[in-house]
């Protein structure tokens, strides 16, 4: 269950990493705001939504379903299902933190892909917590500046399609699950889930293709040669 690289040298967050983290979340934030406002959400509501939800994946999944003519609850369900990723990240992060319910709750609530990936590579519990929060700070900084710029200066950017911003988020997601796709099981689950969605898209009610892509997990487990890990 736990992701213990044990002997691997523990990378600590350098200033360059911090900047990369901030720039990454900045670009996601700007893109999300521009798309939200393009989709008819008022600027203020878009800003509030991204501040409190703080999950571009969920918000994009929600928008994709609404865009396809899906109902409100189908869209919400799709948005929640894609966020299971965060729950799974919390599963690997939480046991590695120093004792203390409050600090564990606080860190778990902020589990994202990059901060957990960097944190769990630290050898000690204190190191895990320290690098986790340092990475998280970079993410928050970039995100809030990004959604601020996207909300209030989005018009200056002009036509987002012309800038290719609609390709930014799928590309970012691909990078996020890149390591998982490198594993044999992950690759099967990803390809199967993607194909299921592709085949279902034109026929199934909006939202369902994303939900039913969970079948890719079952396919990966069934096809996997490993008896029990």
């Amino acid at each position: 269950m736990s992701t213990e690289p044990a002997v691997a040298p523990a990378p600590r967050l350098s200033l360059a990493d911090f900047a990369t983290m901030a720039i990454t979340f900045f670009s996601l934030g700007v893109t999300l705001q521009v798309v939200l406002i393009d989709n008819g959400t008022s600027a203020m509501r878009a800003f509030v939504a991204s501040s409190v939800i703080f999950s571009a994946t969920s918000q994009f999944a929600y928008l994709a379903v609404i865009d396809a003519g899906g109902g409100e609850w189908a869209a919400i369900l799709a948005g929640v299902i894609v966020a299971t990723r965060f729950g799974i990240l919390a599963v690997s992060l939480t046991p590695r933190l120093p004792d203390g319910t409050l600090r564990r709750v606080a860190a778990s609530l902020n589990a994202f892909d990059p901060n957990v990936a960097i944190a769990v590579q630290q050898p000690t519990a204190d190191g895990v917590e320290r690098e986790f929060w340092r990475t998280t700070a970079g993410m928050y900084l970039g995100w809030f500046i990004g959604i601020g710029v996207g909300t209030f200066l989005g018009d200056v950017l002009g036509d987002t399609q012309r800038l290719g911003l609609d390709a930014v988020f799928p590309a970012a997601l691909l990078a996020i699950i890149g390591n998982l796709l490198r594993t044999a099981d992950g690759r099967v689950a990803g390809i199967a889930g993607g194909l299921l969605c592709l085949v279902l898209l034109p026929f199934a009610p909006a939202g369902l293709p994303i939900i039913l892509s969970l079948g890719g997990v079952a396919i990966a487990i069934l096809l996997s040669k490993e008896p029990e890990s």
């Binding site: 994946t57 994009f60 999944a61 994709a64 865009d67 396809a68 799709a78 299902i81 894609v82 299971t84 990723r85 799974i88 599963v91 609609d166 390709a167 988020f169 799928p170 997601l173 691909l174 996020i176 699950i177 998982l180 796709l181 099981d185 992950g186 690759r187 689950a189 990803g190 390809i191 199967a192 889930g193 993607g194 299921l196 969605c197 592709l198 898209l201 293709p209 994303i210 892509s213 969970l214 079948g215 890719g216 997990v217 079952a218 990966a220 487990i221 996997s224 890990s229």
Partner: peptide, 21 residues
């Protein structure tokens, strides 16, 4: 193991939807 694979399948579905739909 199944739980660990959910992001691969579901996030890939979102990628497909955002890319070709």
């Amino acid at each position: 193991r199944a739980a660990g694979l959910i992001p691969a399948a579901v996030v890939m579905a979102v990628i497909v939807q955002l890319t070709v739909a």
